[in-house]
Design a protein around this nucleic acid. Sequence first.
DNA 1: GGACGGCTACTCGGATATCGCTTGTCCGAGTAAATGCGG
DNA 2: CCGCATTTACTCGGACAAGCGATATCCGAGTAGCCGTCC
Lengths: 161, 161
Amino acid sequence: MRMGEGVEWALHSCLLLAWVGDEPVPAAKLAEFHDLPSAYLNKQLQALARAGIADSIPGRRGGFMLARAPEHITLMDVVAAIEGPDEAFRCTEIRQRGQGSVLPERLFRQPCGIAVAMAQAELAWRRALKAQTLADLMTTVAAQNPAAVERARRWHDLIRR
Amino acid sequence: MRMGEGVEWALHSCLLLAWVGDEPVPAAKLAEFHDLPSAYLNKQLQALARAGIADSIPGRRGGFMLARAPEHITLMDVVAAIEGPDEAFRCTEIRQRGQGSVLPERLFRQPCGIAVAMAQAELAWRRALKAQTLADLMTTVAAQNPAAVERARRWHDLIRR
DNA sequence: GGACGGCTACTCGGATATCGCTTGTCCGAGTAAATGCGG
DNA sequence: CCGCATTTACTCGGACAAGCGATATCCGAGTAGCCGTCC
């Protein structure tokens, strides 16, 4: 199982947007900060905008900015925005195919036990992601690596027009 | 994020192997039971064998059988065998690229906060998978759909040579 | 009748194509600031 | 000097390609059972 790179990019970008505050930052600048392909990062940011996590400001001094306070953005929100809302494990009901297809349909009203078990595990994952907000991440990073935060703010002042 | 179909196939196949007991069942028969492409299912079963979950018996009356009791096979074992052992979220340390590359290397000794947060969530998922064994699944299914179990056993008697 | 050697059928196992999705790139639509002109 | 229309530069947004892993298939190596033959 593999999660797309976009999630990592989006999370770091959100963190950066959180540091610099309330002004929009262009996708190109965000990309430059982490040395990423700007056009592709733009795509991920669009996904964040569609999900209501970020606002996209068009025009000359446009860019992206967080749509709400970091306390109200969970990691789950970001992951779901980039990777899509559906579950990793998808039950295709193979129990009903082949030999299973001769059994009466009544028996399959209840969901497949395997699907239930997998969904349960995935729920634990989702819960853990929902429990952590962007603000929590900010606290951790600020305590552990304040120099990086300082650097981000300096950089923003520099590119500020 | 998306999990391969092979996981679902492998789980159902393991369950079937658990019902029929201690005799090897050829990959072709397992595939036939769920109406799956046999050659590809064979590949997944090989993965199970490499992981030590199943034994592969070569020769005329060969096939696959569980390598240990269902109580000692967790869902995590099966998922890891098929999908690979590494984490879904992979930190590529983009914090050290671009603007971050001018900071002293000392600051990056501690792991990236984002990676830690994601790993923590994934750990919850893994724990939930480890907590459920194949035997648990058997109990659930037997209680909920005993006819399917009966059907599986009948089928096995039928193809038994 | 029993044992042995060869044969055959069946199985796994890995090498080989094909497909779809993630990754990556490009150009056009749109907007807000800047600019120049007239009052 | 001030207000307004035009230009311009810069941004997002979605349409368009490429690379790579998952999906699917095939054939060869190897083994265990079966059969015929010989003792």
